[in-house]
Design a protein around this nucleic acid. Structure first.
Lengths: 144, 144
DNA sequence: GCAGTTTAGTTGAAGCGTCAAGCATCGAGG
DNA sequence: CCTCGATGCTTGACGCTTCAACTAAACTGC
């Protein structure tokens, strides 16, 4: 199916733009973006891993790298001392703010602008349908 | 967009099924499948890399692994001695034949069966539209 | 309270993808 | 022919993801 080809190709396109513009992978950007939307730009590791569909080890490694680049800060959670809170630093916020428009534009150029209004509606309905199975608990898109 | 979530999640689903059933990644399966469709189950490395949207180094590594597992055979191309022909072995053919139905079923369960006839048509038209930009030369789907 | 289990997260080793460099062959120009 | 650039592919090193193993803290039942 042609759709499979789209699924194969699209991530690469999104990745290269972010790599060029901000030297982050699409996944790293997504992590930063999820943090930036959270109250106080802070989330617990587990919550963040659910939102980003990452395994905990993966997230742990990524956060360590982002921390070493000064974009994220880790602090033990006071309420549950097993847990770790990840927060955006000032620098991290700056990066997200600076990078978001370019990223949005890339999505726009590669997806939205290629389709009619009607098709966008169709695609959204189709995606919704598919997510019922791919993400039954709606982890990736909590009713923000 | 919800569509982005689909693009993130779907590859993982397809991958796990193939990993479970045949101990190959989705990409490895795709390589084997492309070979199986080619005349004489043989393709030159460059042609195969275009069809699978892989860099040549990546393909080279993958083919080496598949060869070491006895699924693929490499032979220098007689017409152009720089080139390498990759072919499916008997064993490789057996794997593709044995694995294809399960893979098709997975795609069916996760995509096709979730949508109405009408939506499938819409998705195909949308994919076609998007591929005009994502794959302008139509490398991934030569008019078979 | 205290053993056993569950939850939260980190770490290190192993495997795959990417990138830069390399080698061989082909083809075009003089 | 012979050189020079282009083409086809391979290789090795490095980075990221995954998996298994581990530590530590929190619940649970007795």
């Amino acid at each position: 199916m042609r759709f499979v080809a789209v699924v194969e190709l699209l991530p690469g396109v999104l990745d290269s733009q972010l790599q060029r513009d901000a030297d982050v992978s699409h996944f790293e950007y997504y992590v930063l973006a999820m943090l930036s939307e959270a109250p106080n730009a802070t989330l617990r590791m587990t919550a963040l891993s659910l939102k980003t569909n990452a395994t905990l080890p993966r997230l742990s490694h990524v956060i360590k790298r982002l921390e070493s680049r000064g974009l994220v800060r880790r602090a033990p959670c006071p309420e549950d001392r097993r847990a770790t809170n990840a927060s955006l630093t000032e620098e991290g916020i700056v990066l997200v703010v600076a990078t978001a428009p370019g990223h949005v534009r890339t999505v726009r150029e590669n997806v939205i602008n290629r389709l009619t209004e009607e098709q966008i509606g169709q695609l959204d309905a189709i995606s919704d349908q598919l997510l019922r199975r791919l993400d039954p608990d709606n982890r990736m898109n909590p009713p923000a």
